[in-house]
Amino acid sequence: MATSAGFLARRAAQKERVRLLYRRALKDTLNWAVHRHLFYQDASDLREKFEANRDVDNPDVIDRLIDDAEAQYRNFQHPDPYIVPWAPGGSKFTRNPPPPKGIEIIYNYGKED
């Protein structure tokens, strides 16, 4: 804390943590709400929680706030989140995967000599 460069680096790291936390919380809000009309209200409430601490400028207080929010988020995580079908864990992941190299598929079944 003796130099302003260290202070700025710490603030940048804190901002990144807040952005990631907000992003994950927003995604889980959608996972829990599912329906849009419920999601809009829940997302607004989530944003208000973040906005309430917008003007805090003490780095130690900010660190404690982020730690507390991350703990709340861990309790809030959805056990069965929505996964895009093609992503790992999705319903289409590795469906019809290409055959590994070295394996040759012969398409003339029944016409072998």
């Binding site: 901002k15 807040v18 952005r19 907000y22 992003r23 927003l26 995604k27 944003r47 973040f50 895009v84």
Partner: peptide, 17 residues
């Protein structure tokens, strides 16, 4: 920065990413 997070999430929803 939080609005940017929301915009990126909207983009993900739009393109199913």
């Amino acid at each position: 920065s939080l609005d940017t997070v929301e915009v990126v999430m909207a983009i993900e929803e739009e393109f199913k990413l």
